[in-house]
Design a protein around this nucleic acid. Structure first.
Lengths: 237, 237
DNA sequence: CTCGACTATGACCGACCAGTCATGTGACCG
DNA sequence: CGGTCACATGACTGGTCGGTCATAGTCGAG
């Protein structure tokens, strides 16, 4: 399993009323809410815009959720579960090699972001929520889960001697995390793909697989060999 | 020179009135404003809080600046100029080696962030401003300037054969940028240093130079050699 | 038909926001 | 003294926000 969300899953659920809703209405509401939080950060997101989009009354939101914070928490949890289980299901279980495993995780993560821009953007925003106030707990858990996954990978890699054993694990994990999260921005630029537009249009779009692999090759390459040229016989064996 | 800010510098200046202010008052205002934007993102920052801190009337802000946006632009420009010229002045001119030059740039940047937390945090926030609406232009320029600097470094490194020549320059520059910007978070965690608190207390604090160098060594090491262990005789010379 | 449980509603509240402007103050000059 | 200019002020406007609540509709059970 890629990440464990059991902690979050238990708390801050929607009300029973929400689940009693006709499927179609519930989904329209969820879509609109995901849109809103994918397009704006927590503070800027507006319940007013959501209800206007769905065409329901302001008060209805409070029939479904205790408040903005609970709604947000639910959405983030939902998105995280969806993305992580997508990656999990796409990962073959028998890839032992560290770099390949890392590469594949990032690859499927990227595919998810392009095919489900609403969910991807929501999680991306959550990652960068200022770590203060209401957002803190969810964002911190999201971050912690990702870091934990990477740490497991790195530690296994060191045990297998695929990775050097003189690494500062904390730093390496941190660096991998940053490169993973921010890759989205690079891909957006390189492919001329606007995630915001994709969210607004509500449609995912397929991704140029070859080009994506090329970028991931660069990333894996950088991580494996570093940037240095072969010239002055550095301390490599 | 590390970065060029001439474009921005020309526009969106404070009014003459602002410069006519007694030195002490002007500085109290600037300090309070920097505090506010260092602690909150653009949208959340409140002119009301600033004037309350300084002890002046709301209307006075509009005697000094055309509005919130212009104030912000001025502050970011000011902070960027200060930081970049600090780094520039601290960099010896004769360091040719790519990794060392990069390392030193990051090193002095980090020293700046710890000693001038207000300015450092403001720039950090600006970096992560959502690229839409009012903020767009300044944030984009800030980002562009940093990327340009890194690109120059990388291209020189490739010319000198310090770096491999099969690199995807765009990606490498992007990766360096992300690692540079986010290093702040890692250092904060490792050193148990809260930038927010430092801003609130208004005091910079000296930094454990040895520990900082240790982290930078890891970073430079990762970039130079990569993570791979020596074991299976990879394609390194 | 009546009752009670459930759900939808939107006017309303208090808060905070950026920005405006009429009024006032005080310094300098003729 | 009167006039002018620079500057300070804070009540006020119009807007948005999250959240509340009295009211009303709906529907199945008795």
């Amino acid at each position: 399993m890629v990440q464990d969300w059991s902690v979050t899953r238990a708390e801050a659920m929607p009300t029973p009323t929400f689940f009693n809703l006709p499927r179609e209405k519930r989904e329209r509401f969820l879509d609109a809410a995901l849109d809103e939080f994918a397009l704006h950060d927590y503070r800027s997101a507006s319940l007013g815009r959501i209800v206007a989009t769905v065409g329901i009354a302001k008060g209805s939101v409070y029939q479904y959720f205790a408040g903005k914070q609970e709604l947000y928490l639910y959405l983030v949890t939902l998105a995280a579960e969806t993305k992580f289980s997508f990656i999990d299901a796409s990962l073959p279980g028998d890839v032992a090699d560290f770099f390949e495993r890392f590469r594949l995780s990032v690859y499927h993560g990227a595919r998810f972001d392009f095919s489900r821009p609403r969910l991807g953007s929501l999680l991306y925003n959550a990652t960068y929520e200022p770590s203060g106030a209401a957002t803190l707990e969810v964002a911190a858990q999201l971050r912690a889960a990702s870091l934990q996954y990477l740490r497991t990978l790195v530690e296994a890699g060191i045990r297998n001697a695929e990775l050097r054993d003189d690494l500062d694990v904390d730093y390496v994990v941190f660096a991998l995390y940053q490169l993973t999260v921010s890759l989205r921005d690079f891909l957006g630029e390189r492919f001329g793909f606007s995630f915001k537009d994709a969210v607004r249009e509500g449609s995912g779009s397929p991704i140029d697989d070859a080009a994506l692999h090329a970028v991931l090759d660069q990333m894996a390459d950088l991580l494996r060999q570093g940037l240095a040229g072969p010239e002055p016989g550095r301390d490599v064996t």
